[in-house]
Design a protein around this nucleic acid. Sequence first.
DNA 1: TTGTATGCGTTATCAA
DNA 2: TTGATAACGCATACAA
Lengths: 337, 337
Amino acid sequence: MQNINIKQLAKALNLSTSTVSRAFRDNSDINKETKERILSKAKEFNYQPNHYASNLREQRSKTIAVIVPELANNFFSQAIHGIERIAREKGYHILIYATDDVYEKEVSFIQHLHNGRADGIIMSVSGEANDHNYLNELTQKRLPLVFFDRVYEDIITPRVITNDYDSSFSATQHLIKQGCKRIAYLVINKNLSIGKFRMQGYIDALLKYNIPYDDRLVVDCTNSYSKNNVILKQMLTELKPDGVFTSVERLAFATYYACYDLNISVPEQLKVIGFSSLEIAPLLNPSLTTITQPATKIGIEAANLLFKMLENPESVDPNEQIVLNSKLIKRRSTELS
Amino acid sequence: MQNINIKQLAKALNLSTSTVSRAFRDNSDINKETKERILSKAKEFNYQPNHYASNLREQRSKTIAVIVPELANNFFSQAIHGIERIAREKGYHILIYATDDVYEKEVSFIQHLHNGRADGIIMSVSGEANDHNYLNELTQKRLPLVFFDRVYEDIITPRVITNDYDSSFSATQHLIKQGCKRIAYLVINKNLSIGKFRMQGYIDALLKYNIPYDDRLVVDCTNSYSKNNVILKQMLTELKPDGVFTSVERLAFATYYACYDLNISVPEQLKVIGFSSLEIAPLLNPSLTTITQPATKIGIEAANLLFKMLENPESVDPNEQIVLNSKLIKRRSTELS
DNA sequence: TTGTATGCGTTATCAA
DNA sequence: TTGATAACGCATACAA
């Protein structure tokens, strides 16, 4: 591993380790020439202070952990990109954990992070249906935590979210204005807080336009492509909706596939709108009307919030909530025929 | 941060720290009951051995670093997903670094990893055009390194790649068989080794079918969407190709956008094929013929290779090269009209 | 099977 | 401005 340490470097320079150490710190008193001599020798020997020793000593790791449900997803990869950018600027490193939407993995990751490996956590949650109390241990131990997008409402910690209720309302309203009377709403998990807000927007929009709410039209889907295909085809055949609103990107794709299979033409027979961070939505057949979240921005804001907490824990209200706006981008999949 | 340490736990149990330490290690001699007593108390106190202290002691971090050019990219996010899975199984953590295709960042990341933070590195490279010698420091210090997909040919270290030459040959051949005579080949950087192999397949296929090679049809693009749009529109207008083969996913999208703008119909006037890990290629308008790399598999293999090196450095030949096959998936964008 | 003592590589305190 | 030394929390060699 590391073959040269501070002692050897000090010896080579005929200095003490403390002096050498000082050369790497900005604040310490040290003769400018000595410092330069040390740094140049360090470069020659390719010496860097051992990260683990420093961290043990300083009691912080300059590392933050990012926990997300999945990686192969446009929203999360863009968000991580945003986080990465800020972390890099601050000289922090980031650890990535994917839960695959499995609650137990989330708990396990969080618990393992209690050993000092990370100074803080940025997370989009997976286990809404379960017990979140394990997270309170975090705050007891003062490991700063920031939620983004998918949050636990019963855990008090700063968060960055989007205006999901409004977006859903607008999306549903858009479908209605395009002439839809039977609008299906597709979700992965009705109980996720995000699902709840998004769903309420849907319900209220129906209400406003006096369209009866039919709970068969709220369809619980899964993370499995093949299962969704079955569920959706059945739904489309039996319930014959004229509009579909998907709360998650993947379900919009699943709807397209199902329509291809069933020879249902979009937008003529069925209009489709969905939450999606897909950059090539205009290239789909037909181009997909989306509610697009500012994914990278969300990551950046979440990271900024966490760093503010790391710099001064008092400076951030635990109830702090940053709400960013999503955009409704109208395309062919909901075009009036 | 961590408020309880091994000493406090030992005191609470009336044991020595060494005994407590042993309880967390599998191999050590320890009375089964004592071990259980310790572990249960540890759970109660929410104690975990401090990661940095352990690592300092053991001289390894149980962490690997993953360096990629970009995160918001289907290929890399899938590959990372694969790496993550293996790392998790092995109890390793992963640090993520995105270079944004900037060589200097790559160098800086690598150099900072020399401080013991990671036990090994998995990387897809960014700076083919530059000096790679800085990497040799890695091998001198025995920090294991595995390349995947984009590699430096002059650095000897195990790698996981795909059969790029063959894939490109097939792709070009496919276009030719579909009737194309003037096939443009789009690249980001002609000098990247990946670009080279992919390009040679293109050239050789042309040769085989006696189609003259015209180097104006090899188009150097950028990472900027807007610049590419200009470049491609100009190319399409001036050179009037009847087929386009893109060496990178992004360029296939750019071609679609350019065709939309210019009212060129795909596949009738122009056939398009591209390297792409996009899962919804069938949903594009028209559905895109792709050469799809087994991205997740590549990540898995790269991780397996690295762990093999970590377990026993002698067990892996530095010249080891795993070649996985990409798949040519024919869709509408190259359909004979 | 358990305890004692030492050192991993660094930084901070204090003294020179 | 520099040096000696102790401590960070843990794991192991060795002793008991």
